[in-house]
């Protein structure tokens, strides 16, 4: 139990060595977990260029819960892919703890929009995957896996395969698999989009509890503005494609938050409206462009 708790709070982490990994280069600059400096990203659809991200300047502070909202197709997921080092920017640079991200960023945990579970591995074996990659075996591995299976409420489903689970359950396996690796920073791309309202509430509670416990940095991409306001310290509104930072709003709702009640706080309503005004224009514009 104590072992597991220590793991949860991020102190006994194996993933986060003291020295930065060799693949992160450049001069460190303190005070930011992730920096997007003049970042642009262009994709090619055959011969036509698609500018997913126009020009993004954004600093993610250590330990903060950052919500990112924007109309669909505005490059929100691209931002996370860049932070994870799965793709490189067309212009500008992405820095992680001051080091240029040049390759896959193994210091982050990334929950992609797709659940990306390994279909031939059972629930527990999927959750064990990051531990196996780190070379963790035996009792300690089993304990951690059991702990996270319980955490996401999948006890009794350990030996099921992803194809035997509902969409919501698969998401929770993905969450457990990301958390078991105890990353410093969590990138979450609409992680709870597929869940029903009740379950989402539970997962929000769980996410906040884990975050408050571990003080990880979390970047949370969502299309649900209320979800962003509910959870985040700051909410970033991204414009329609090509994505730019349109507005950054501090969410000054008190912590710890009760996810079931915070919606009824009058400040919640004001924040929501202000953000919606910024977001709404682009949602409509994005719609017309289609």
């Amino acid at each position: 139990m104590s072992q597991v708790d220590r793991h949860l709070s991020g102190q006994a982490s194996l993933a986060t060595g003291a020295a930065p990994p060799a693949r992160l280069g450049g001069a460190p600059s303190a005070g930011a977990t992730i920096e997007f400096v003049g970042v642009a990203k262009r994709f090619w659809k055959g011969d036509t260029p698609v500018d997913a991200i126009g020009h993004v300047e954004l600093v993610v502070r250590p330990g903060e819960f950052l919500g990112i909202v924007g109309p669909s197709g505005c490059g929100k997921s691209t931002l996370l892919n860049l932070a994870a080092g799965l793709m490189l920017p067309t212009a500008g640079e992405v820095r992680y703890q001051g080091h240029l991200v040049r390759d896959v960023n193994t210091r982050v945990g990334y929950m992609t929009q797709k659940d990306s579970l390994v279909p031939w591995r059972t629930v527990e074996s999927n959750i064990a995957l990051p531990l196996e990659i780190r070379g963790l075996r035996g009792r300690r591995k089993r304990e951690l896996v059991a702990h996270y299976v319980e955490l996401v409420g999948l006890k009794g489903f350990e030996r099921h395969f992803p194809s035997e689970l509902s969409g919501g359950m698969r998401k929770r396996v993905g969450l457990a698999r990301t958390l078991v690796n105890d990353p410093e920073t969590l990138l979450m791309d609409e992680p709870f989009g597929a869940l029903d309202a009740q379950l989402r509430l539970l997962m929000h509670e769980e996410t906040l509890r884990i975050w408050e416990h571990s003080r990880k940095t979390i970047i949370f991409v969502t299309h649900d503005l209320a979800e962003a306001v509910l959870l985040a310290d700051r909410v970033v509104v991204i414009s329609a494609r090509p994505g730019r930072v349109k507005l950054i709003k501090d969410i000054d709702l008190p912590r710890p938050r009760d996810v079931a009640r915070v919606r009824f706080d009058p400040r919640f309503g004001r924040l929501f409206e202000e953000l919606w005004a910024a977001l709404g224009e682009d949602v409509r514009r994005g719609d017309e462009n289609r």
Partner: peptide
């Protein structure tokens, strides 16, 4: 996507091959 997942977990080339 599966390859990316294990790479972020820190898998080396051999581990990507053997796991995915």
């Amino acid at each position: 996507d599966l390859v990316d997942v294990v790479r972020i977990f820190g898998a080396n080339r051999f581990q990507v091959l053997s796991a995915i």
